[in-house]
């Protein structure tokens, strides 16, 4: 039923929606690709950040535009998801990062024959040269 409504959409609304959808899909895919192909955990944690910010942002804006055009009234309740995701994504990445850092520190302390490493903040070089894949 809404296929007919789609065909009546003017070009100036369907073109930006399509562009935003394509961009958002590409960005979301690139973020997941980074999660899959980067070699170390501390690099992989940067991959999903672009999915969350730009990918989700583009698709949410496209959804807002499309529904506003279809219903011929401003539909902005996607702002709720945007707000929620933007508020919670930093917390999630910080918690996961801290958990990973503490686990690595604990693993390094548990290994015999290495020094405690108090003078260094985090096991930067050790973790990566150890091949913590």
């Amino acid at each position: 039923m809404h296929e007919q409504a789609w065909e009546q959409l003017p070009l100036w609304i369907s073109l930006p929606v399509s562009l935003l959808l394509v961009l958002g899909g590409c960005i979301a895919l690139i973020g997941c690709l980074g999660l899959l192909r980067l070699p170390h955990f501390y690099q992989r944690i940067h991959g999903p950040a672009i999915t969350i910010t730009l990918g989700a942002g583009c698709i949410l804006i496209a959804s807002m535009l499309l529904f506003s055009a279809l219903e011929t009234r401003p539909v902005v309740h996607e702002l709720l998801i945007t707000l929620f995701v933007l508020l919670t994504a930093p917390m999630v990445s910080m918690l996961v990062m801290r958990a990973a850092v503490y686990r690595d520190l604990r693993k390094r302390r548990a290994r015999p024959g290495t020094k405690d490493g108090e003078d260094e903040v985090y096991p930067v070089t050790q973790t990566q040269s150890r091949g913590d894949r």
């Binding site: 950040a49 917390m91 801290r98």
Partner: peptide, 28 residues
């Protein structure tokens, strides 16, 4: 500040070191 830094792709906040009040940051 933590929110902005973590939302920016390529940087992740780890913690504020309690002794020196330095921010530990991981850069991509």
């Amino acid at each position: 500040l933590a929110g902005i830094i973590n939302l920016t792709p390529g940087t992740v906040w780890v913690e504020v070191l309690p002794d020196s009040h330095e921010l530990a940051l991981h850069v991509f």
